[in-house]
Write a protein that binds this DNA or RNA. Sequence first.
DNA 1: AATCGCGACAACCGCTGCTGA
DNA 2: CTCAGCAGCGGTTGTCGCGAT
Length: 353
Amino acid sequence: MGRPPCCDKIGVKKGPWTPEEDIMLVSYVQEHGPGNWRSVPTNTGLLRCSKSCRLRWTNYLRPGIKRGSFTNQEEKMIIHLQALLGNRWAAIASYLPQRTDNDIKNYWNTHLKKKLKKLQDQASPDEDDCNHHQQGFTTSSNSIPKGQWERKLQTDIHMAKRALYEALSLDNQESFSNEATTALGDGDDICNRPPHQESSYAWSTKNIARLLEGWMKSSPKPGKTKAETAACFSNVSNKMAATAGSSTSEGGVTGVATPECFDSLFSFNSSSSDASQSVSADENNVNLTPETSAIFQEESKPSLESSHNHPVPIKLIEKWLLEDGSAQGLQDDYLMSMALDEDVFFSHHLDRN
DNA sequence: AATCGCGACAACCGCTGCTGA
DNA sequence: CTCAGCAGCGGTTGTCGCGAT
C-alpha cells in the first residue's frame, strides 16, 4: 500500500539550515519541548519537513552536544564499541553522551575506517596491539582469541573512566577557570581538554554563535527581517562568545541585556542544560518553564555539562559519574562478558537505552 | 592566481520498529 | 489482530573548505 511521504515534497525546503530557521526551531522546542515533530513545520512556519526538523535538533541544536575533534579516549571507545556493536551508531552514541550518532558515524567513516585500514596494512595479523580493533572492525568476527581483546577493551574503558574521573576531581580544585580558553573556533585544543570542560551550554551557544557569525560574513542579504536579525546576531554572537569565554562567576546569562529575539534562546540554552542536572532553575536565574524543564530532564542524555556556571553541577556530574559508575560497572561487566555472550550484553545495553 | 582533488561534515533518503486506534 | 502514523536509525549524497599542483 505504500507509505505516504513524511511531508509534502512540494514547497519543502532542503539543504543547509539558516540561522533564522535554527532560531525558529529552537524557540519552538523551548516552548513546546522536543517531540511531536510532525506539527513543528506547521506550528513554526518552517518550510521543512518534520524529519528535517528533528534531525536538525538532535544533531545540531540540542543542548549537550559537543563538537570538534574527538579525543583519543573517545576514539578508542568508538573503535571498541564499533567492534562490539557493529554500525549501531545510536547505541555507540549512548556511551558518548555528548556526541551524536551522526557525528560518530561521520567520524568513523572519515577517520577511523582509514586509520584502522592503515593499521591493518602495517600490522601482521597476530602481533599488533590494535589488531583486535581491526578484527572487530571488519565483522565482529570471533576469529581472534576473545580473552585477549576483551581484557584490552576492559582496560581501555577503565582508563577512560579513570581519566574522566581524575579530570573531574582535578577540575573541582581549579574552579573551572579553564573555560576562558574555550573561545570560538579553538577546536585544536579540544583533544587536550578533559571532556567535561566542554560544557553543553558553551558548546551549544558557541555552535550557534559560530554559525551566526558565518552567516553574517557570508550572507548580508537585504530585507528588513534579515537586517534586524543580523543586528541581533551580531550582538548575540558577541555575547555568546563572551559568555563562553568568560570565567564562571556569573550565575547565568539570562540577565544579560540581550536582544528580545534571543532572550528565549539564551535562557533556553543555559537553563536546559542546568535542568538536565536537576538544579533549581531559580538558582541560576533561568526562565525555563516547568514543562520544558521536565521534558529536558527526560530528553537529555546523561551528559557532562553546564559545569562552568555553577559549582553545584559538578557535584551532580560526579554523582552521575559515580552512580552511573555502578551502572557503568554493570556495563563494564557486560563488556567483559560480551565476548562470552554478545547477545546478553547487547540486550542489556539496549534495555538501558 | 586558478584549478583540481580530497576530506569533512551536514543533511537527505529509505527502511524499520514502535505505538495507539 | 491489523494498520496507519510517527520517530528513530543507518547508509548515502551533496556541499563546502582547504591544500596541492
